[in-house]
């Protein structure tokens, strides 16, 4: 059963990723970082159970750990360079 749930979540992730990648604003595209941190981790956990593979639990742990750091770096860097005109508004407005 866990492998079916993992497949279901993978389908969920693909639909969601496809949607946010089209997303009207840059901020929408950043939502992909959140998707990997939750749905991606859930898939790894379910596969760990389904395949009785302890290594996948470690993978999920590292994934969750890196999601915070990678997500933050991604949000800061990837978002900075694209629209130079808007980058002055980067600092909080007040």
């Amino acid at each position: 059963m866990p492998e079916w749930l993992a497949a279901f979540l993978l389908a969920n992730l693909l639909v969601a990723l496809r949607w946010v990648m089209r997303g009207p604003t840059q901020a929408d595209r950043m939502l992909a970082a959140l998707l990997f941190g939750t749905t991606g981790v859930a898939i790894l956990l379910l596969l760990h159970e389904a395949m009785a593979s302890p290594a996948l639990l470690d993978a999920a742990l590292v994934f969750a750990l890196l999601a915070a750091i990678a997500g933050a770096a991604f949000a800061q860097r990837a978002w900075r360079d694209e629209t130079p005109a808007a980058s002055e508004a980067d600092h909080d407005r007040d």
């Binding site: 604003t25 840059q26 901020a27 950043m30 939502l31 970082a33 959140l34 941190g37 999601a67 915070a68 997500g71 933050a72 949000a75 800061q76 978002w79 808007a86 508004a89 980067d90 600092h91 909080d92 407005r93």
Partner: peptide, 14 residues
């Protein structure tokens, strides 16, 4: 953390 960063930047970007 990520949602805070996204929301803050989106607001700052107007």
């Amino acid at each position: 953390t990520i949602s805070y960063l996204i929301a803050r930047r989106a607001l700052a970007r107007g």
